[in-house]
């Protein structure tokens, strides 16, 4: 495993929903690269397009435009435009762990059928091979072999999530999108599942796109963090750096909202005024300007470019001015 190897490149990914004359930008112009074995945390408030981003990358929903390029054996293939035979090869590489451990398992199938389902569609595994793979993966995710004949209704949320993880890992993926993978679980179980995800990452060299609204969890697990606002990436940088020194005013406000478990700590919350604008009719210029206290005339007129500044990508006109402050 080499942490400098790029495995996934997302370029200008856009997803719009159209209904009559209104056009909603759920995702606009998102670009980033992910390296082998790293975890990218994707944060933002609800409705900012985190989930849409994850689903477009795995092709759970079809993106309107843009590219998702997989680097495989020296080749670069656009996953979104892959032909049927390319799909057969690439599909296993990019998998997803779902948020809802109750809705994502078909209640009519046994655990064995659920976990082995992907193998049905790929490779010509014999029954013995399938059994061996299922046994191996169930052991890896910490499930008892005797559970295999049971149905999902027999399990708790944490166990179901382990089943979901087993299903997404059985094809040996390279990139796994974890869409709020622990949000539906209670805290002690969250810790178990996060530890499991980390162990699996070390063992299998997985790249995670970890979508979550829980900042503490994201900070713990991620190498880099991407902050989204209204379908766009506003800031993207190394975790510790970003948490210590947020540059975008939205990131500042978002991080200040995370509670710190220390009763003596005096929180300096930045309270944002106004509502999140609707993506149906986003404000002109920077989408954040109506709620931003640093907004200038320039912010109101043109959207800032997404540029690298001080080792970090950021979309803001004023980040330089704020630092001086």
């Amino acid at each position: 495993m080499n942490k400098d190897n790029i495995v996934l490149e997302v370029r200008n990914l856009t997803k719009t929903y159209e209904s009559g004359k209104t056009k909603v930008y759920a995702l606009s112009d998102v670009s980033f690269t992910a390296r082998e074995g790293e975890t990218i945390g994707i944060v933002g408030e609800s409705g900012c397009g985190k989930t849409t981003l994850g689903r477009c990358i795995v092709r759970g929903i079809e993106a309107t435009s843009g590219e998702v390029i997989l680097h495989k054996d020296g080749r670069q293939i656009d996953f979104l435009k892959a032909t049927k035979s390319e799909m057969k090869e690439l599909r296993p590489d990019i998998q997803m762990i779902f948020q809802d451990p109750y809705g994502s398992l078909d209640p009519r199938m046994t655990v064995y059928d659920i976990i082995s389902e992907p193998l049905r569609y790929f490779g010509n595994s014999t029954k013995d091979e399938i059994n061996r793979k299922v046994d191996a993966i169930t052991e890896k995710v910490g499930l008892d072999k005797s559970f295999l004949r049971r149905y999902p209704h027999a399990f708790s949320g944490g166990q179901r999530q382990r089943i979901g993880i087993a299903k997404s890992l059985i094809l040996n993926p390279k990139v796994v999108v974890c869409d709020e993978a622990v949000s539906a679980l209670d805290v002690s179980i969250q810790a178990q599942i996060i530890n499991l995800l980390e162990e699996l990452q070390d063992e299998l060299g997985l790249t995670y796109l970890f979508i979550s609204h829980a900042l503490a969890v994201v900070r713990h697990i991620s190498d880099r963090i991407m902050v989204m606002y209204l379908g766009k990436v506003v800031e993207f940088g190394d975790t510790e750096d970003l948490f210590k020194n947020p540059m975008h005013p939205y990131t500042k406000a978002l991080l200040s909202a995370a509670p710190i478990p220390d009763p003596d700590y005096k929180m300096e919350r930045i309270i944002l005024e106004g509502e999140v604008p609707t993506p149906v009719n986003p404000p002109k210029g920077c989408h954040f300007h109506p709620r931003c206290r640093y907004a200038t005339e320039q912010c109101r007129n043109t959207y800032p470019p997404f540029e690298k500044r001080n080792g970090r990508y950021i979309a803001c006109w004023n980040s330089g001015a704020m630092e001086a402050e």
């Binding site: 759970g60 057969k88 998998q95 809705g103 994502s104 398992l105 992907p118 299903k167 094809l171």
Partner: peptide, 15 residues
């Protein structure tokens, strides 16, 4: 979700 999960697992429409 389990329908999307199946699609991501590579299930064709008929399956």
């Amino acid at each position: 979700d389990y329908i999307m999960s199946a699609r991501i697992s590579g299930a064709p429409g008929s399956a």
